[in-house]
Every structure is written in structure tokens, then in C-alpha cells.
Simulated scan of single mutants.
Amino acid sequence: MKMPLHIRPLARDDYRAVGRIFFYAIHEGTKGIYSDQQRRAWGSEAIELDRWKARLDHLNGFIAEINHEPVGFFTIDREGYLDLAFVLPSVARMGVGQALLKNVEQWAKDNGATQLTTDASLVAWPFFLKNGWHVTNEEHVERNGVTLTRYKMQKSVR
């Protein structure tokens, strides 16, 4: 049975939901790909609500809801950089990420971007690849003394 999915613009008051989605996507959704140490370095030990409240002041994007419950969010800037792309593990592979990506790509086009870019995790890069993006570079970044692998990716949106 398909659940009704609602996509709406991200709002400042979504910081609690965004923090929760980010935390569970990192700590549960990347198990088996990243070590415990890597997940803690990337997603911290707890949901940092103050950090998310301040960060949402400067982000554009969309949040996905199923039955009025936030389940995923993607952010995009005017240059076409997709900074955050997270979905709760409980709804992974159910079309939530696809719907959010469609919305951020359209928003980018509407706001004059011709190229989309992102830094995709080991978990996210196959999703982007399937959606017409390509890898431009693999990089290893340090977070809190721990090395993480990610992929610089891009896609034209003319």
C-alpha cells in the first residue's frame, strides 16, 4: 500500500524534525557502510537542536511528510549546491528521496542554476548516480579526527 507523500518548503520551525532525520539517517541508515566511530564523528552523539535551529535560518529546501510526519529533507542553494539530503531509514527506497530530489532540481532551475553539485556519502552516491548525476572526484575528509570518504558529484539542469 502506497502512503500519501507530501512535499513542502522547509521552514525554520522544522529544526527538530531535521535534527531527528539527520541523526537517524546517519546512525541507523549508514550502519554496515560506516563504522561506529565514523558515524559519531559525522552525526555526533546526540541530536543538536540548537545547531539545527541556527542552521535552518540559512537553508532553502524541502521536507517530505507521510501522514503529517516529517520523514526526509533536502537543501539547495541558489548556485545549485545540494548540501543536505537525508531520509529516515524506515522509508528508504520508498520514493521519498526521489520526490525531494525532483523538487530541489526544479527549484534550482527556477532560480537560475544550470549545474547541480553535491558531496555525496558512500550511502548517497549510488542514489545520485541513478538519477543522472556523475562523480567528479573522490575525497577523504576529516571530521573530529576521523576520516570519511565522499564523492563530489554534479548534474546539468538546463
Rank of each mutant, 00 (worst) to 15 (best):
G145N: 01
E45C: 11
A11C: 15
K53N: 14
W42P: 02
V18G: 03
R39S: 09
F22R: 00
D50E: 15
Y151P: 02
A124P: 05
Q106V: 04
L56F: 11
A124W: 01
L100Q: 08
A85F: 14
Q37A: 15
D119W: 08
W133P: 01
F73S: 03
H6D: 14
G97P: 03
F74H: 10
K53R: 15
G80D: 05
H27S: 00
L10R: 02
H134P: 02
K152I: 05
I21M: 07
D57N: 15
N137D: 12
G61E: 04
A11H: 14
T147L: 11
P9Q: 11
V104K: 01
R55P: 00
I63E: 09
V135L: 01
I63L: 11
V141M: 06
F127P: 00
E48W: 09
F62Y: 13
I66W: 00
F74G: 05
A124Y: 05
L59F: 11
I47T: 13
F62C: 04
T149I: 09
T75D: 05
Y81I: 03
F127Q: 05
V123F: 14
I76V: 14
E138H: 07
T147H: 05
G97Q: 06
I7D: 02
P89T: 04
E65K: 03
L56M: 08
W107M: 00
H27A: 01
F22W: 11
S35M: 07
Q115E: 14
G132Q: 02
L5G: 09
V135E: 07
L82N: 10
R40F: 13
N67G: 14
G61M: 03
R150Q: 11
E79D: 15
M153R: 00
E139C: 09
L59P: 05
G61K: 01
G43F: 08
R12M: 12
